[in-house]
Amino acid sequence: MITHSNISPILRFACRSAARIIQVFGVYVIVHGHYSPGGGFQGGALLAAAVFLLRIGEGREHSQRDMPSRVTLLLGSIGVLVYGAVGLLTIATGGRFLDYDAVPLPGLSLDDRHYWAILVIELAVGLAVMAILVGIFDRLLQRFHHD
């Protein structure tokens, strides 16, 4: 069992700082996916990797503060629901399912509506992928911590 007392401060510091850098880079990959290789899936995987690093380096208990295990499925379902909600929203405003011409953003041309809708979709996908990868990781390792 890893506790605060027997974990090396150097390891702790290295893990924390590296994880923060990876998280910033993951957010960058998601929101810059319009202009360079990147997007929701890749950025979500990077965010999940940062949480894995904290889980491995600091132990499960101390990294709960950054990403509690019990909210992972909740966050994942929020991501999927946001995605579905965008699709239903375009139906409600008179378009087809996920037809971004109908996104109700006044004052924007059609291609800019696509632009912002894609950004929302990418954020939702990134959130879902990050939360569910962390959730799978936690469930796979949970046995070692309870025995």
């Binding site: 997007g39 699709g87 996920l98 971004y100 632009y115 894609i118």
Partner: peptide, 24 residues
């Protein structure tokens, strides 16, 4: 169509959005 440089992103999240929804 989407004012977005990255074609992979446009295909993923716009033309084939339903596919990506199912995949999520």
């Amino acid at each position: 169509d989407a004012h977005t440089e990255n074609m992979v992103t446009v295909v993923l999240a716009d033309y084939r959005a339903f596919d990506t929804l199912g995949e999520t």
